[in-house]
Amino acid sequence: MALHGEALAADKPRLARLKLTPEQCITQTKAQSCDMQITLQWQLVHEELICIISDYGARQHWCNDSPEVDRLTLQIETHKDIHFVMISQATHKTLAKAQLTVSSVAAPQVRRRYRNPWSVF
Protein backbone atom coordinates (compact mmCIF):
# COMPACT_ATOMS: atom_id res chain seq x y z
CA MET A 1 0.00 0.00 0.00
CA ALA A 2 2.87 2.41 0.81
CA LEU A 3 4.41 1.78 -2.59
CA HIS A 4 1.23 2.93 -4.32
CA GLY A 5 1.26 6.21 -2.32
CA GLU A 6 4.92 6.76 -3.15
CA ALA A 7 4.18 6.22 -6.85
CA LEU A 8 1.42 8.83 -6.74
CA ALA A 9 3.73 11.31 -5.03
CA ALA A 10 6.40 10.70 -7.68
CA ASP A 11 3.92 11.30 -10.52
CA LYS A 12 2.69 14.58 -9.02
CA PRO A 13 4.18 17.61 -10.83
CA ARG A 14 6.37 19.90 -8.76
CA LEU A 15 4.90 23.36 -8.29
CA ALA A 16 8.14 24.85 -7.01
CA ARG A 17 11.84 24.15 -6.76
CA LEU A 18 14.33 25.72 -4.33
CA LYS A 19 18.04 25.42 -5.11
CA LEU A 20 20.81 26.28 -2.66
CA THR A 21 24.34 27.05 -3.88
CA PRO A 22 26.60 25.78 -2.36
CA GLU A 23 24.82 22.98 -0.50
CA GLN A 24 27.74 22.06 1.76
CA CYS A 25 30.39 23.73 3.85
CA ILE A 26 33.38 21.72 5.00
CA THR A 27 35.46 22.94 7.95
CA GLN A 28 38.78 21.77 9.40
CA THR A 29 37.38 21.27 12.92
CA LYS A 30 33.92 20.95 14.45
CA ALA A 31 34.44 24.19 16.39
CA GLN A 32 35.25 26.18 13.23
CA SER A 33 32.34 28.01 11.62
CA CYS A 34 31.50 28.51 7.96
CA ASP A 35 31.73 32.10 6.79
CA MET A 36 30.46 32.15 3.23
CA GLN A 37 28.02 33.56 0.72
CA ILE A 38 25.08 31.37 -0.31
CA THR A 39 22.46 31.85 -3.02
CA LEU A 40 18.90 30.59 -2.90
CA GLN A 41 17.25 30.42 -6.31
CA TRP A 42 13.70 29.27 -6.95
CA GLN A 43 11.43 28.34 -9.82
CA LEU A 44 7.65 28.45 -9.59
CA VAL A 45 5.05 27.05 -11.98
CA HIS A 46 2.68 29.91 -11.12
CA GLU A 47 4.00 33.40 -10.41
CA GLU A 48 3.34 34.28 -6.79
CA LEU A 49 4.90 36.07 -3.86
CA ILE A 50 6.92 33.83 -1.57
CA CYS A 51 8.73 33.91 1.76
CA ILE A 52 11.88 32.08 2.79
CA ILE A 53 11.97 30.91 6.40
CA SER A 54 15.10 29.47 8.01
CA ASP A 55 16.50 28.44 11.36
CA TYR A 56 19.49 30.76 10.85
CA GLY A 57 19.45 33.21 13.76
CA ALA A 58 20.62 36.31 11.88
CA ARG A 59 18.07 35.98 9.04
CA GLN A 60 15.03 33.87 9.88
CA HIS A 61 12.45 35.42 7.55
CA TRP A 62 12.54 37.07 4.11
CA CYS A 63 9.70 37.82 1.67
CA ASN A 64 9.82 39.09 -1.91
CA ASP A 65 7.83 42.12 -3.10
CA SER A 66 7.66 41.13 -6.76
CA PRO A 67 7.13 37.80 -8.56
CA GLU A 68 10.05 38.69 -10.85
CA VAL A 69 12.51 38.26 -7.96
CA ASP A 70 13.78 34.68 -8.14
CA ARG A 71 16.92 34.61 -5.98
CA LEU A 72 18.29 35.66 -2.63
CA THR A 73 21.97 35.98 -1.73
CA LEU A 74 23.05 35.86 1.92
CA GLN A 75 26.32 36.16 3.79
CA ILE A 76 26.22 33.60 6.58
CA GLU A 77 28.41 32.47 9.46
CA THR A 78 27.40 29.21 11.11
CA HIS A 79 28.76 26.03 12.63
CA LYS A 80 25.56 23.99 12.24
CA ASP A 81 23.20 22.97 9.43
CA ILE A 82 20.66 25.52 8.20
CA HIS A 83 17.22 24.53 6.88
CA PHE A 84 15.41 26.79 4.40
CA VAL A 85 11.67 26.53 3.65
CA MET A 86 9.93 28.42 0.86
CA ILE A 87 6.26 29.20 1.54
CA SER A 88 3.52 30.98 -0.38
CA GLN A 89 2.64 34.43 1.00
CA ALA A 90 -1.02 33.94 0.04
CA THR A 91 -1.65 30.44 1.41
CA HIS A 92 1.29 29.95 3.82
CA LYS A 93 1.77 26.46 2.37
CA THR A 94 5.23 24.94 2.05
CA LEU A 95 6.37 24.97 -1.57
CA ALA A 96 9.94 23.66 -1.34
CA LYS A 97 12.84 23.04 1.05
CA ALA A 98 16.64 23.17 0.96
CA GLN A 99 19.41 22.56 3.48
CA LEU A 100 22.96 23.78 3.98
CA THR A 101 25.02 20.97 5.51
CA VAL A 102 28.06 21.79 7.66
CA SER A 103 30.60 19.02 8.21
CA SER A 104 34.20 18.81 9.38
CA VAL A 105 37.09 16.78 8.01
CA ALA A 106 38.91 16.53 11.32
CA ALA A 107 39.63 12.97 12.35
CA PRO A 108 38.92 12.13 15.97
CA GLN A 109 42.00 12.17 18.16
CA VAL A 110 43.20 8.73 19.17
CA ARG A 111 45.04 8.36 22.44
CA ARG A 112 48.31 6.53 22.07
CA ARG A 113 49.54 4.13 24.69
CA TYR A 114 53.10 4.89 25.71
CA ARG A 115 53.90 1.47 27.08
CA ASN A 116 53.78 -1.79 25.22
CA PRO A 117 50.62 -3.86 25.50
CA TRP A 118 52.69 -6.81 26.74
CA SER A 119 54.82 -7.06 29.81
CA VAL A 120 57.54 -9.49 30.93
CA PHE A 121 56.55 -9.18 34.59
Rank of each mutant, 00 (worst) to 15 (best):
M86S: 12
I87R: 07
E68D: 11
I87E: 01
H46K: 07
Q32R: 02
I76V: 09
I53D: 05
W62M: 05
D65F: 12
C34Q: 02
I87N: 02
W62I: 08
C25F: 11
H83G: 09
K80M: 11
I82A: 04
I38A: 03
S88Y: 11
Q43A: 11
C25E: 03
H46M: 09
I52R: 06
D35C: 05
H61Y: 15
E68V: 10
Q60K: 15
S33V: 02
V45P: 01
I53Y: 12
M86C: 11
N64E: 10
S66N: 14
Q89P: 02
I52W: 00
D65C: 09
Q41S: 15
E47P: 04
M36C: 00
D65N: 12
H79I: 08
R17E: 15
T78D: 05
T39Q: 04
L49M: 08
T27S: 06
Q43W: 04
T21P: 09
M36T: 02
S33A: 08
L40P: 03
I53A: 14
I38Y: 00
K80W: 11
Y56R: 08
E47F: 04
R59G: 06
N64S: 10
L20Q: 03
G57E: 15
C34W: 01
H61G: 01
H79M: 03
T27R: 06
I52V: 10
A31R: 07
D55K: 01
Q32H: 08
C63D: 07
V45Q: 04
S66C: 01
Y56A: 12
T27W: 04
Q75S: 13
F84M: 00
C63G: 10
P67Q: 04
Y56K: 07
D55G: 12
L72R: 07
Q75F: 05
S66F: 04
L40K: 01
T21Y: 09
M86I: 08
R17I: 15
C25S: 11
I26M: 00
T73Y: 05
A58H: 09
E47Q: 14
H83T: 13
L49T: 07
E77D: 10
L44A: 08
N64W: 01
I87Q: 09
T39I: 09
R71D: 07
H46S: 05
N64G: 02
M86A: 07
K30D: 10
Q75I: 10
S88H: 13
I53G: 04
I26V: 13
M36I: 10
A58E: 15
A31C: 02
D35A: 11
H83Q: 14
A31V: 09
L18K: 10
S54Q: 00
V85K: 12
A31S: 10
I52A: 13
T39A: 06
K19R: 05
V45K: 13
A90M: 12
P22F: 11
H61T: 10
